Computed example of a mutant assay.
Amino acid sequence: MKLVVNGETLDLDVDPEMPLLWALRDVAGVKGPKFGCGVAACGACTVVIDGMAVRSCSLPVGDVDGDVRTIDGLVRDGRMHPVQKAWMDEQVPQCGYCQAGQIMSAVALLEEIPHPSDAEIDDAMQGNLCRCGTYPRIRSAIKKAAAAMPVTLDAET
């Protein structure tokens, strides 16, 4: 089966029922998404598929319809994504285990809503658990990243 991951087309010899997380980690060698719970409840395995944050631990790889982005593919031309930079600037990580999923959910949020309200941030991030309780820093980092994201102009304006 063919899968586009971080802009690269991969040919994977896997059972279509295999969770995307295991296809990424064990077959493709993409180690950014983490296993946390296996039931899509914690968000550590979050990836972005065509602009939507998706829990890869419960999505069969055969059901993937679109390009998959992981934290491994956010750095471009040697530069961190604005969300990654804001995460560091705001010193969000403590243990760090949930951070890849947190960052990918934030990326999907900011691509959909460039300047989200606190309620929109809370809604988008509610499926990502942080046992260290860095939620205030996460919200602050998302706001900082929103301010730093490049402005895209509508093609009709």
Rank of each mutant, 00 (worst) to 15 (best):
P114Q: 11
L59H: 08
V107M: 03
G62T: 10
K143E: 06
S140I: 03
K143G: 04
A44H: 08
S117A: 11
K144I: 06
R79A: 15
E112L: 11
V27P: 06
E112T: 14
Y135I: 06
G101N: 08
K34H: 12
R76M: 13
E111L: 04
K143Q: 14
G32L: 03
D118Y: 01
A147W: 08
T9Y: 10
K34P: 02
G38P: 04
D77R: 10
S105P: 00
L110G: 05
A124G: 11
I138E: 05
A155H: 14
A44N: 09
C37P: 07
A23W: 01
I138L: 05
V39Q: 13
V4W: 06
Q91T: 06
G66A: 13
V75T: 15
T134W: 04
V27I: 14
Y135V: 06
A100F: 01
Q91G: 08
G51V: 08
P33S: 01
A40D: 12
I113R: 10
D26C: 04
D118H: 10
S105H: 02
V107N: 05
D65H: 14
A108W: 01
D154W: 13
M1Y: 10
A106I: 07
R131G: 05
L3A: 07
L21V: 04
D118K: 10
V4H: 09
A86R: 02
C132W: 03
V47F: 03
A108E: 05
P82E: 06
D50V: 00
V68Q: 05
A28Y: 05
M18N: 11
N6V: 08
S58H: 01
G62H: 07
P60S: 12
A119D: 15
Q99P: 08
T70I: 01
D123Q: 13
L129A: 09
I113T: 14
A141Y: 02
P33K: 00
E90D: 07
L153C: 12
R25A: 08
D122Q: 14
Q126L: 10
A108M: 03
T70F: 01
M88W: 12
G36P: 04
S140C: 10
